[in-house]
């Protein structure tokens, strides 16, 4: 029996199976987590496949401008008579893709710099952390405003890239702090004492111990990125080229007067609701991260 467990390949596969079984167990523990996962997956589905169901240019209907909510137009229509729900769906791809890019860049850069800085300490640490501090002191919004004058952010990836490059500072600081405390732990010292290579210590010992932390940061970075770019478009500092929830908000408020009249209200509420629901989904899933990555909590 023991030899069956020991086959290296078999062990890895079995462990992966156990991991996913554990994940399922953790998610099942609270219904809220499942709801969160369903919401997040739903949005992902919408971002990937949603735009396929709609033509590139949504049909306009000059007779039905700011139409109220109806069976045909669930959230009414906008100032040009386009279906609001369809705009939410087609706009989601840009929003979610750029948020994902932002989150990945934030977490990868932040984790790499934080890990390196905390593990190496000394001169590297000082240099990298001064750099991080400098970066943290640069106010993000004004910089974005300046950037937007020269850059149109037509593609979601560009948008995500810029937001990501602006946002890794906090994660780097937090990961560094975690690394500094973890590297004093017995098992890291033991790994060094055994002469294990640094790549092993960082990749196999430190990183998994920080996995819940990193995963949480990543999810929170996603919501942060959604807010940031929707905010930018809402403020109108970026051109209206892209389909975007922020553009919808901008047009509904400044064009349709959604804050003063009721006609454009559904037009404003629809993207807001989408953002709210998405954030809720993420928050509900974040709750499970600690348990998913901790073998002790993953168990029954």
């Amino acid at each position: 029996m023991s030899s069956a467990i020991l086959e290296t390949g078999g062990t890895a596969a079995a462990m992966r199976r156990n991991f996913w079984r554990g994940v399922w167990r953790v998610m099942r523990r609270k219904p809220s987590r499942l709801i969160g996962a369903v919401i997040v997956l739903g949005f992902a589905f919408m971002g990937v496949f949603g735009p396929m169901f709609h033509p590139e240019l949504l049909p306009r209907d000059p007779d039905r401008i700011y139409a109220p909510m109806s069976a045909e137009h669930w959230f009414g229509t906008d100032g040009q008579g386009r279906d609001v729900l369809a705009q939410v769906v087609t706009g989601s791809r840009y929003v979610l893709l750029s948020a994902l890019v932002t989150a990945v860049i934030t977490v990868v850069l932040g984790t790499a710099i934080g890990l390196f800085s905390g593990f190496k300490r000394g001169r590297w640490d000082t240099v990298l952390m001064r750099l991080t501090d400098m970066k943290l002191t640069i106010p993000g919004l004004p910089l974005l405003l300046v950037l937007s004058t020269v850059w149109s952010f037509g593609s979601a990836v560009e948008m995500g890239l810029v937001l990501g490059l602006l946002g890794w500072g906090g994660v780097a600081r937090a990961v560094r702090a975690q690394t500094l405390s973890l590297r004093e732990r017995g098992f890291i010292e033991a790994a060094r004492g055994l002469g294990l290579p640094t790549t092993h210590i960082v990749g196999r010992e430190l990183l998994p111990s920080m996995a819940p932390y990193i995963a949480m940061n990543m999810l929170i970075a996603v919501t942060g990125a959604v807010y940031a770019q929707v905010g930018l478009f809402f403020l109108g500092v970026l051109p209206y080229e892209a389909d975007n929830w922020g553009v919808m908000l901008n047009l509904s408020v400044f064009g349709g007067g959604a804050l003063t009249t009721t006609a454009a209200l559904p037009y404003m509420l629809a993207p807001l609701l989408a953002i709210l629901l998405f954030t809720l989904g993420i928050v509900l899933v974040v709750d499970a991260m600690d348990e998913i990555f901790n073998p002790r909590l993953r168990e029954e």
Binding site: I5, L6, T11, M15, R185, G186, F187, A190, R204, E205, P208, S209, A211, F293, N294, P295, R296
Partner: peptide, 10 residues
Amino acid sequence: SALNPTRTVH
């Protein structure tokens, strides 16, 4: 603390 909680004995 001497053993990594995320790794099996193997």
